[in-house]
Design a protein around this nucleic acid. Structure first.
Lengths: 148, 148
DNA sequence: TCTATCTAAATGCATCTGCATTTACATGTC
DNA sequence: GACATGTAAATGCAGATGCATTTAGATAGA
């Protein structure tokens, strides 16, 4: 069965999703940059790695963060050059590697978080009530199949 | 006064906003590309121009679409090369120009719309009820100061 | 074992983006 | 009119992204 045509409400939601994300993300990224920090993508990778004591395989990061294989490969290059991660050889699979966060990487996300948190508060939190934020999270969750 | 810390609900809304937009936008872009069409940015510019019979100044497009000046300049280069727009000299301001959509540009967005519309329906419309779509649009509108 | 196929990750190349600067014209002041 | 300042748009160059392919090792079947 073919898809139904999207209603006006759906089209409006689409337009605003694009617009809102673009606006809010750009504002938050700009604050990080203004504070002398690297892009959010660095934070995302480092945060994911900081939760995995044994490190992660690149393909696992790829799935967790929805990054393209070649983009992640080069992002890891940059993170490695900056000393934020290290690549270890993988015993179970000679093709692969294990990526782990370094102390310096942990220090970076720790330093970034106050700026990041304040930016989220300013550009998102300040525009919504508690209840609205919860309802927005819930609705957005339906789009990606997130729980709750 | 400093910003309050973002609550858990706000942080969850932030994470899901990024994730949902990334997922849905990528899926829609992929459908357009698979059908042999140019990126959504082309559609956005052409749609905006199609509503302005007399054409628009680049700086007006820039504000309407939240594009960086240099990105728009080069996007217009590509659109011009593809015959979708034309650049006219601007009588009132010698520094500027008037950008107008061509018949071929109008034809392009007309051909794109069915694919675009179906993709929106599939990746957004199918995941929300009518009522949820309206509430999502309303909440997202608060983030950018959109009316209603 | 040998070979075909599959998967993990890297890479060459073209395109796109970001930043700083340039070019060209406009506007205001003297 | 001359000059400083401001604004519209383009552009050189570096860095990032997308795509296709390559490299290296895993896996399965004869």
């Amino acid at each position: 069965m073919p898809d139904a045509l999207p209603s006006d409400a759906v089209i409006r939601a689409w337009a605003r999703l694009i617009r809102a994300q673009q606006t809010v993300l750009a504002a938050v990224e700009a604050e990080l940059k203004a504070a002398g920090f690297p892009p959010l993508a660095w934070y995302d990778v480092l945060l994911e790695l900081s939760r995995a004591d044994a490190g992660l395989r690149p393909f696992a990061l790829e799935q967790a963060l929805l990054l393209a294989q070649y983009n992640l490969s080069r992002l890891l290059d940059r993170l490695e050059k900056a000393g934020c991660i290290e690549r270890r050889t993988c015993a179970e699979d000679g093709r692969g590697q294990i990526v782990a966060i370094t102390p310096s990487g942990r220090a970076l996300i720790k330093r970034m978080w106050p700026t990041y948190r304040a930016a989220i508060a300013r550009h998102l939190g300040a525009k919504l009530s508690e209840d609205e934020a919860a309802r927005l999270a819930s609705l957005l969750g339906k789009l990606t199949g997130a729980k709750a």
